[in-house]
Structures are given as structure tokens and as C-alpha cells.
Computed example of a mutant assay.
Amino acid sequence: MAQTRGATGNSKPRVFPTISTAPSRKPRAVGTKKTKPVGVTKKRAPATHHKRKPSIKDKVVGAVEKVVGTVEHKPGKKAAGTKKIRGTDGKNNRTAKVAKI
């Protein structure tokens, strides 16, 4: 049979620590020649993926592939269709040019 906390003698009130949501500031470097900028820290934007311009055919094929993935419950196939629609599937990607001999 389950007992309450009051019955076990451990009936102290539960206190949860509060988490600060204020922006953090970087401390100023003391005694160094180089001074780093002091201020609110910001996160960088994610790197952008090189996009190619998808053709109408790519958009149709991608949409069909996305629907098939949805119906078959295959998230990988659905994601591949989305990438094909957006032009980020890596088809015809740019490679380094090599000099022909």
C-alpha cells in the first residue's frame, strides 16, 4: 500500500530552483592587452545549404515521392521528396574543376 509523504515523516516542502532567462553577459578580460567585445552573446545562424533551381519535373517527382512516403509511413522517403522539391538533394552539385591534360 502506498504511503503519503506526511506519513513517512518526509513532509518538507519541495523547493525547485528557478532558472534565469535573462541574457548572459561576457565578463571583461582584466589585465590583457587584447580586449574582447563585451555584450550579450548571440547564436550564429545555421550554415545555408547550396540550392540548385529545381525544374518542374523535379517538383512533380518530389511531390509524388513525398506522398508515397507519407502513405507508406516511411519518413526517409518523405524527406527525400521534400529535398527534391526544394532543390537541396545534391543532384548536379558543384564540384572542383580539374584541368584536362
Rank of each mutant, 00 (worst) to 15 (best):
Ser55Trp: 02
Arg94Phe: 04
Thr8Phe: 08
Thr41Glu: 11
Ala79Ser: 10
Pro75Ser: 14
Met1Lys: 09
Pro23Phe: 00
Arg25Thr: 01
Lys53Gln: 11
Val64His: 05
Ala96Pro: 00
Pro46Ser: 15
Ile19His: 01
Ile101Val: 12
Ala47Arg: 15
Glu65Lys: 07
Asp89Arg: 00
Ala22Gln: 08
Gly69Phe: 04
Thr41Asn: 08
Lys91Gly: 03
Ala63Gly: 13
Arg44Glu: 10
Val98Leu: 10
His73Cys: 08
Thr88Met: 04
Asn93Gln: 08
Lys97Tyr: 03
Asn93Tyr: 02
Glu65Asn: 03
Ser20Trp: 05
Thr4Cys: 12
Lys42Leu: 03
Gly62His: 03
Ile101Gln: 10
Ser55Ile: 00
Thr4His: 03
Lys26Ala: 08
Asn93Met: 03
Asp58Tyr: 04
Ala47Glu: 05
Pro27Asp: 00
Arg5Lys: 13
Arg5Trp: 05
Thr95Cys: 07
Arg14Cys: 01
Ala63Glu: 08
Lys77Val: 00
Gly39Val: 08
Val64Phe: 12
Ala99Val: 02
Lys26Asp: 02
Thr48Tyr: 03
Val98Phe: 02
Ala47Gln: 12
Val61Glu: 14
Gly39Phe: 06
Glu72Leu: 14
Arg52Ser: 09
Asn93Leu: 06
Gly81Arg: 02
Thr88Ser: 07
His50Phe: 07
Asn92Ala: 08
Glu65Leu: 15
Lys66Arg: 14
Val15Pro: 13
Gly90Lys: 15
Lys12Ser: 13
Ala96Trp: 02
Arg44Ala: 11
Ala47Lys: 14
Ala45Tyr: 01
Glu72Cys: 09
Ala7Leu: 11
Ala47Met: 09
Ala96Met: 04
Lys78Ile: 02
Val68Arg: 15
Val64Cys: 10
Gly39Tyr: 04
Ala22Arg: 06
Ala47Tyr: 02
Asp89His: 07
Lys97Arg: 14
Lys26Cys: 09
Pro54His: 12
Pro37Gly: 13
Lys42Asp: 05
Val15Tyr: 11
Gly9Asn: 08
Ala63His: 08
Val30Met: 15
Gly31Val: 06
Lys12Trp: 04
Lys57Cys: 02
Ile101Asn: 14
Ile101Ala: 15
Gly9Met: 07
Lys51Phe: 04
Lys34Pro: 05
Ser24Thr: 07
Ser24Ile: 06
Val38Cys: 00
Ile56Arg: 15
Pro23Leu: 00
Ser20Asp: 13
Asn10Tyr: 06
Thr88Trp: 01
Arg44Ser: 11
Met1Pro: 15
Gly62Glu: 06
Ala29Phe: 03
Thr35Tyr: 10
Val60Asn: 12
Gly6Asp: 09
Gly62Ser: 07
Lys74Arg: 13
Arg25Asn: 06
Lys100Arg: 12
Asn10Leu: 05
Ser11Thr: 04
Lys97Trp: 01
Gly69Gln: 10
Gln3Tyr: 00
Arg86Met: 09
Lys59Asn: 04
Pro75His: 11
Lys84Ala: 04
Asp89Cys: 09
Gly87Trp: 01
Val71Asn: 02
Lys83Glu: 01
Val71Arg: 02
Pro54Glu: 08
Ile19Arg: 07
Thr48Met: 12
Arg5Phe: 07
Ala99Ile: 03
Glu72Tyr: 09
Glu72His: 05
Ala22Val: 00
Ala99Gly: 10
Ala29Trp: 01
